[in-house]
């Protein structure tokens, strides 16, 4: 176990370094000094254009998306008292993806720039209403999981249906590639669209720490210690939906971050769910920034998708965790 302040500091420094690295990578071949000047000093030159309009939004979105996924994953694992919970569990990612897929299929995405992310946000909003209607205002963690599984299954089936019936192979290919998740060719508009929702998510999720700590002892013990379970659950569902819905809207489906990052950092915070929230937000940001750097460094010529790389990084980590768990039994 590391002192929380030291851990947060270390992770923040890692994020800053990866953020800077992300800003320096791209096909335009801009040097470190030149890039920094172009970023800070206003000018009409191509370097400023590249830095401010292409690389900055990409790096910002990487950090924001990772923080949203890490924070949501840690909060959900804490609430459900299950290390296998991940942000997609409550059906928000699948529903947001369905919204986006419909936008591509119906031509909304091509009609105006924000058609796709707005449709995805609408999908996430519908998921929140669905999950609250299904699981009810009271009820246990189990009903929430079941409602999430049911919603994910339905949204997944409808997404497959859209693909199945898609008359145009180009639209189908676009849908498939979008679903792999990517931060390429995003603009500051995407940043400004996602930021308010992600901030809302953080505002709702970060204060749940102490209640999540109390939940370690079970729902009855936590409630008897003054935790308002109904309110906690509402904050959690809306917070995760806002953060993850906005993430899916601007970047597509990026998996494994919300599952693996809390797992990796849990031993470092002494397993305290409250300390894990901030740590996972920072760790998630670092992981997505690193993956997005890897996407551009490994295969600069091909459009390697971010979601593919996070899964490729995440799955082996998982094998490692299982291996360690086996040794402990």
């Amino acid at each position: 176990m590391i002192r929380p302040a030291a851990l947060y500091g270390g992770l923040a420094a890692l994020c800053a370094a990866l953020f800077a690295l992300s800003l320096m990578i791209g096909p335009a071949g801009i040097g470190w000094g030149e890039g920094l000047v172009a970023l800070v000093v206003p000018s009409d030159g191509p370097a400023t254009m590249v830095m401010r309009e292409i690389r900055l939004p990409r790096a910002l979105l990487g950090g924001m998306l990772g923080a949203a996924l890490g924070l949501s994953g840690a909060a959900l694992q804490g609430y459900l008292r299950n290390p296998l919970a991940e942000p997609g569990l409550i059906g928000v990612s699948a529903s947001a993806a369905l919204g986006a897929v419909l936008a591509i299929q119906l031509g909304l995405a091509g009609a105006f720039a924000l058609g796709l992310p707005l449709a995805a946000l609408a999908g996430a909003g519908a998921a929140v209403l669905g999950i609250l209607a299904l699981a009810g205002p009271r009820g246990t963690a189990l009903t929430l999981i079941l409602a999430g599984v049911a919603l994910s299954a339905l949204a997944g089936a409808l997404t497959s249906l859209v693909l199945n019936l898609s008359p145009s192979p180009f639209a189908a290919a676009e849908i498939v590639f979008w679903m792999m998740g990517s931060l390429a060719d995003r603009s500051m508009t995407h940043v400004w669209l996602a930021a308010p929702f992600m901030v809302l998510g953080a505002v709702l999720l970060l204060p749940t720490g102490r209640a999540l700590d109390a939940l370690t002892l079970g729902e009855d013990a936590a409630e008897a210690m003054g935790v308002r379970l109904v309110r906690l659950r509402l904050m959690l569902v809306i917070g995760v939906a806002a953060a993850v819905g906005a993430g899916t809207a601007v970047a597509g489906a990026v998996g494994f971050v919300g599952l693996v990052v809390p797992h990796l950092l849990r031993p470092l915070v002494g397993a305290r769910p409250s300390a894990l929230l901030i740590a996972s937000a920072l760790g998630g940001a670092a992981m997505v920034l690193a993956a997005d750097v890897a996407v551009r460094v490994i295969l600069p010529e091909r459009d390697l998708k971010l979601g593919v790389v996070t899964a490729l990084i995440g799955a082996p980590f998982f094998f490692h965790l299982i291996w360690r768990l086996r040794g402990r039994l």
Binding site: M1, R81, T216, G218, D220, A221, R266, A271, R272
Partner: peptide, 16 residues
């Protein structure tokens, strides 16, 4: 005012 010890002895995470 009151502390409660539920019957189920749950400890979900590896806290010290």
């Amino acid at each position: 005012e009151v502390a409660f010890l539920p019957q189920a002895r749950e400890i979900a995470w590896d806290l010290n």
